[in-house]
Design a protein around this nucleic acid. Structure first.
Lengths: 177, 177
DNA sequence: TATTGTTATACTCTATAACTATA
DNA sequence: TATAGTTATAGAGTATAACAATA
């Protein structure tokens, strides 16, 4: 699933040119006449940050999901539990705003976490419209494990792009957190 | 929709602490008791590249869609047209593999571009299973305009994160293109 | 009147599976 | 048997709108 992960060299020089299809041998040994992946120029795409960011985001989420597959936690669920764990008592609106999730979607996310006894909604005494969100005892224990696995995922990221590059990236994008 | 765009300061020091809700005044002047966005600590999330990358990707795609709204072209449509324009005659499989799009999804993307007379499928003479993809005359003219608008979008990115940071980002993520 | 949580709808995107026509 | 294109389905994720309870 991690296509192109090793294909760092981009043949920009051939962009815009119609290369003659070379008879080549692909990874699994099959013979075909198609252009190989790294023979297909990206043209203007190579200069767009959004394209690279999208490809990277897909890779990183797939690695996160794979690394936390045993505990069945996805990136958004992890982010919700982490924020509630660090700020118990938050309302659903506050969590949704902080993480940039639609409040309508957070309803379903919390339903699933509540059914798994990881999070609980407690009626607010001061504003009876809102719920104060807390981790359950089970949720606190589980989150500690999730964080260990997420740290392992983060090491995969560092291996992939380099320790220093990862830190530079975090710094460059700090305005978006 | 660009929440937190200016909120560069993160109060990591308060993460894990339950701050007393301060009576504060939000941007639109309404008074409330909730934690303000930058009072809510991200805890472990602040150290995860994936979280920042996801937030950035959302911002960048929204800006792209907004900047190209007049021509009704979305990021994926742009990437498909750009690759076909630079490599005419590619098969659907080749485009799908190169861009990391499911071949099933590319079918619908091409349907819409073909209906708008921007792309055409031409039956391959050598392999009658596959289609050779080309831009139409209208597609070539349109793509030139799309590229001008996309370059404008790219300037927005440079303004947002800084010219040098944008270039560093492209370099760091070059392995994913 | 406005806000919180909720329900519902629609559209995009990702991930599969299965079908057809070719190879 | 395998591959290219297609159709279909299901689940995330995004974007809205509307409603009840409450402020």
């Amino acid at each position: 699933m991690a296509r192109n992960s090793q294909a760092a060299r981009i043949t920009k020089s051939r962009a815009g040119i119609r290369p003659r299809p070379g008879r080549t041998r692909s990874g699994n040994g099959s013979v075909h006449n198609d252009l190989m992946n790294d023979e297909i120029g990206l043209d203007a795409l190579a200069g767009h940050a959004g394209y690279a960011v999208r490809r990277f985001q897909i890779w990183i989420f797939q690695d996160f999901i794979r690394t936390l597959a045993a505990v069945d936690i996805r990136p958004t669920q992890y982010s919700v539990m982490t924020v509630i764990g660090a700020n118990p008592g938050l309302s659903q609106m506050a969590v949704a705003k902080r993480l940039g999730i639609e409040r309508a979607r957070l309803v379903h996310l919390l339903d699933s976490l509540e059914h798994r006894d990881l999070v609980s909604r407690i009626k607010s005494a001061t504003d009876r419209r809102s719920h104060a969100l807390h981790l359950t005892a089970r949720g606190r224990t589980a989150l500690a494990q999730f964080k260990r696995l997420a740290a392992e995922h983060e090491r995969h990221v560092a291996e992939k792009i380099g320790k220093e590059n990862r830190e530079r990236l975090l710094q460059i994008l700090s305005a978006f957190t």
